[in-house]
């Protein structure tokens, strides 16, 4: 049975987000990466804590780089190289934390491994990374959403469309993706998200 994708904004608690900010500590002046659509809530929250923000609408970048049905183009090595060179080149150790949200679940191999490898280089050692994966193994269509930080423990998920599920990543597959990272911690939620907090 195909589960319908809800298009209503949903406000939910996020233990992963809570742990993400807790692991940053009270330090300010950190440089954080946000791969959701730029929004006032995230900019206000992160800069309000005295941190710097690099934001990129990665869903839009994928659509721009690979076309609307972007999962189809991710088996072309030359396109992947061009996409990563254009969108994902940066300095080593430049970020103190990364809010990747659901960007990874739009990618298939080998794109996702190359992307995570670049991410590993761009994060400083010990930096936390928060990613969300669909927990619905049977979903053929997944919602693409914008993730807005209401507070350190609360997220508002605003759907912006839907796309064919590129690949289902179970816990074992996620651990393999982050095998070069120091730790991987899962947070199970009541909804269709699996939150993953990773330490570089």
């Amino acid at each position: 049975m195909v589960r319908p994708v809800t298009m209503q904004p949903v406000t939910r608690n996020s233990h992963g987000l809570d742990q993400f900010f807790a692991s940053l500590g009270a330090e300010s002046g950190l440089r954080l990466l946000d791969l959701s659509q730029a929004c006032q809530a995230n900019i206000g929250f992160i800069t309000g804590q005295g941190n710097h923000l690099y934001t990129e609408d990665f869903y839009e970048s994928l659509r721009h780089g690979f076309g609307h049905d972007f999962s189809q183009g991710m088996d072309d090595a030359s396109r992947i190289d061009a996409f990563l060179a254009e969108n994902w080149s940066g300095r080593d150790n430049e970020f103190d934390g990364a809010l990747v949200w659901d960007a990874l679940q739009y990618m298939t191999s080998p794109m996702i491994e190359l992307f995570i490898d670049r991410l590993w280089h761009r994060l400083r050692p010990g930096a936390p990374l928060l990613a969300l994966f669909s927990a619905d193994e049977k979903a053929s269509v997944i919602a693409c959403s914008t993730y807005r930080i209401a507070d350190a423990k609360t997220l508002t998920v605003v759907p912006r469309g839907a796309t064919a599920s590129a690949h289902f990543y179970n816990s074992r597959a996620i651990e393999r993706l982050f095998q070069n990272f120091r730790s991987v911690k899962f947070f199970l939620a009541r909804d269709t998200f699996r939150e993953v907090l990773v330490k570089r």
């Binding site: 659509q37 730029a38 710097h52 923000l53 934001t55 609408d57 839009e60």
Partner: peptide, 16 residues
């Protein structure tokens, strides 16, 4: 100060 509307596309660093 920065004000960003829903639907706007922004890519880059923000320093306050």
């Amino acid at each position: 100060r920065i004000i960003i509307a829903d639907g706007a596309y922004f890519k880059g660093n923000i320093d306050i």
